[in-house]
């Protein structure tokens, strides 16, 4: 297992947000975390990212405990894609090159430039490379953010609702890109999201959270309507259209 999360607890002031959260993600595996609003999905992701310090428990990447690693070592192991990308007068290439930050000493080296170029080609972003972020659409921006995370050369990729602000077409494009990269390059990936249909379609495993705890973590084939009903508290039907699983609230 690349990513191992063991007994994470987190309190916000006196309110317990995460309670004894444990799970594992293997290489090339895409784990989707779902659950109602405010259940602690983003908090969990921020604990994994070492942006928040959990009260108890540990996060291991490749057998190494994150609390033993320095900031830049953590950054070399885990990359994070935020919900919304900031727009500025910066070219996509520069924004992607920023992913080399943990490796850059005094100045950018040839290797850093080549790495950024390679990721841009892999994600087919060549035509965007010298465009400015403030001239880009939401979907393009999100792809640039993903590229930046990949340039970090991480073993674990964390994505916080990567498609929440995108239209249907861009949602599909971004999720396809993520799926393709994760399978092709063997990263362990954790993605929080709300769209259960997309999760069923693109993720390998689905983890439901309820009240700060893990409600269930299972292969997508084992997800049942009753499970979803219990997490969200509404009746649903689980069917299939053209071989794709579909959840319909009824």
């Amino acid at each position: 297992m690349i990513l191992k999360v063991k007994g994470i607890n987190f309190k916000y002031k006196s309110r317990s947000v995460l309670k004894d959260v444990s799970f594992e993600v293997g290489p090339g595996e895409l784990l989707a975390i779902l659950g109602p609003n405010g259940v602690g999905k983003t908090t969990l992701l921020r604990c994994l990212n070492a942006a928040l310090k959990p009260e108890g428990g540990s996060v291991f990447v490749d057998g190494k405990d994150l609390s033993d690693l320095s900031r830049s070592e953590i950054a070399k192991n885990l990359a994070y894609v935020a919900q919304r990308a900031e727009q500025g007068r910066l070219t996509a290439f520069d924004a992607i090159l920023l992913g080399r930050k943990p490796y850059i000493g005094w100045r950018v080296g040839e290797d850093d430039l080549k790495k950024a170029d390679a990721v841009i080609r892999a994600l087919k972003l060549e035509s965007l490379s010298l465009r400015f972020l403030d001239e880009m659409s939401g979907g393009e921006l999100q792809k640039v953010s993903i590229a930046r995370a990949l340039v970090q050369d991480p073993k674990v990729l964390l994505l916080d609702e990567p498609t929440s602000s995108l239209d249907l077409k861009n949602q599909q494009e971004v999720l396809r890109t993520i799926r393709h990269i994760v399978s092709g390059h063997g990263m362990s990936t954790v993605m929080t999201m709300h769209d259960i249909n997309s999760a069923l379609r693109f993720a390998d495993k689905i983890l439901f959270m309820k009240d700060g705890k893990i409600f269930s973590a299972s292969e997508r084939a084992r997800i049942s309507a009753s499970m979803i009903e219990e997490v969200y508290g509404i009746p649903v039907e689980l069917g299939e259209i053209k071989g794709y699983p579909v959840v319909l609230p009824v």
């Binding site: 942006a51 953590i74 994070y80 990308a85 520069d94 920023l98 930050k101």
Partner: peptide, 20 residues
């Protein structure tokens, strides 16, 4: 300069890039 660029791209992103 690189640290400021990282912060410009969002606080969360900057932290994940190893910036204090």
């Amino acid at each position: 300069a690189w640290n400021y660029n990282a912060i410009d791209s969002g606080e969360e992103t900057a932290i994940s890039l190893g910036v204090n």
